[in-house]
Nucleic acid binder design. Structure first.
Lengths: 320, 320
DNA sequence: CTGTTAGCGCATTCAA
DNA sequence: TTGAATGCGCTAACAG
């Protein structure tokens, strides 16, 4: 029936007729119990409501479906403490492999556990330094540098990096590192990072920014470590009576598609989010088949221009 | 071990110690094979990349997790022809129940099949007329009327309804019906609906609108059948050199959170999207336990004001 | 109160 | 080429 067995055409035809007659569908759980492996992949992401993760899951789902697998999807709600519990849940379901985005891809007991259990997994968005861990992402530090350089080229000198909590995002940390490196290359001191909860409401963001943006030497540009944060910060800055990009330029990271639709369009680092999810599944299957490569795979990013950044006005330009 | 059996405290302690020792985790598939039922729910939605669906899945996932269940998530990519295939896949996985959003909740062979197989399911966003089908949604016709009345109150008379394909969305159809009813109540003729692919790119939307918006009697307001479409249409209208809301007011449907962050904020019908997903799971468990209510449950919506609509300018106002 | 066993649906092995 | 038996991990029923 599954093509494995040997049977005459006649018998096969009769079996198929009977299957149709009784509308019989083979049960995956019987198959799973026998083979001790399922045709199911587990997915762990921080949240489904962030389009950047939803987009990767869309790619994961499509690719898994194309290969006859289904997806168990779970979310940590940005709580790293939940990673272990979700992994255990998925292991209990005997998933064939995992695709996940974690808070810290290096110092992570949950990943240690997966390694110890020899359960294949591929990370998305994470950029582990431990080379034996498989991941699909972009070069976040390079992207952070590229964005910073673009703003420097527009004449900005006081560029503030606004980050989601470093503790829940290595992307945020690496992008910030790229920013620091680019500032240093340009002979400028990096401003102290403004680290905040990017899920916070607009009020919280406004409060966090008000002192900084009212100062005489206020930054002329803000780089936000992700697009949702950038959109929220943009709204907060406008609420404070400042113009974007007239008074303050703003750029984000991630390349969520909504960023193209807002006006002005959000300047951001565009990642192939869906493709990253697809590619993670491709690599996961290679791992499951035992011939997979380890380590980080970088997909190309590009700077998406957008009306939220502009050349710095001469009057507000700081000393070169 | 699962609390069912009877055992002395001593034995239980020894068993638990052994479990910890061997890091033993009971396999869900063994349990499933025995009981012929899994602790897994299936989810079918058009797409994960539309925040309105992602948000409901987030609610579904949280509620399912709280009840010790996992989620198999699949997407039709807006192809109704794929519904049946996905349902069959999930049935083969012996899901305990389904939460889904379909193209047509009434004339739908796939749902007929679920009914015939007595597989419990609850729809989200769909609004079936067949009262034996369980669904959680808002009153889309009332919402369409409310939005239309708000625009009429601002002096708009030529209000165009821009819809995603009716064939893939009963929401779109019902919201349009509400628009028609409200226009009729106000003694105005409904404009011919502009039905288009809401996944189309901005170019396609611009092309579709250009004739309509260049006419002398162009509409002063557009109601879009969902928020993503509204954002895209807003961008297209602006590309044509028109101001929103100065020249054209635009309103959407769904209440995606991004709509609050764009500037001006998108006027829309706010639905409790996450709560709808949670509520669907609550009702699904009732159905699975055999004591569930049938039929459509309407959760409250509200008109979210936003800067994309404004009173009609006297010069462009049509005859009352 | 505790240890043993049958059987869920499938794939695999062995026997005919 | 085909049929029959086995066992995967678990739960429920039963025997001790």
């Amino acid at each position: 029936m599954n093509g494995t067995g040997r049977a005459s055409a006649d018998v096969e035809a009769r079996v198929r007729a009977a299957m149709a007659e009784l509308s019989f569908r083979p049960s995956e759980i019987g198959r799973a119990l026998k083979s001790l492996r399922t045709r199911t992949l587990g997915v762990i992401i921080p949240s489904l409501t962030n389009p950047v993760f939803a987009s990767s899951v869309a790619g994961i789902e499509a690719q898994a479906r194309a290969r006859g697998h289904t997806l168990l999807v779970t979310a940590t709600d940005y709580d790293p403490g939940r990673e272990r519990e979700l992994v255990d849940t998925l292991i209990a379901q005997s998933v064939a492999g995992l695709v996940l985005t974690v808070a810290d891809p290096d110092d992570n007991p949950t990943l240690d556990h997966l390694d110890a259990e020899s359960i294949p997994y591929v990370m998305v968005y994470n950029e582990p330094k431990r080379t034996h861990r498989a991941a699909v992402t972009v070069d976040n530090a390079a992207a952070g540098a590229a964005l910073t350089e673009a703003l420097l080229a527009l004449g900005h000198r006081r560029i503030l990096f606004v980050a989601g909590r470093f503790s829940t995002s290595d992307r945020s940390r690496l992008r910030h590192q790229g920013y620091c490196a680019a500032m240093h290359m340009a002979g400028r001191a990096a401003e102290p990072v403004l680290e905040l909860d990017y899920l916070g409401d607009a009020d919280a963001h406004r409060a966090a920014l008000s002192n900084l943006l009212c100062a005489a030497d206020r930054p002329t540009a803000l780089i936000c470590s992700n697009d949702l944060l950038a959109l929220s910060i943009t709204a907060a800055v406008r609420d404070m009576g400042l113009s974007v990009p007239g008074d303050v330029s703003i750029a984000g990271f991630d390349g969520i598609s909504i960023g193209r639709l807002v006006s002005p369009a959000l300047c951001t680092i565009d990642q192939p989010t869906r493709r990253m999810g697809e590619r993670a599944v491709e690599r996961l299957f290679e791992l499951m088949e035992g011939n997979g490569a380890r380590g980080v795979e970088h997909l190309p990013f590009h700077l998406r221009p957008g009306g939220t950044i502009a050349a710095v006005a001469p009057s507000t330009q700081g000393p070169a």
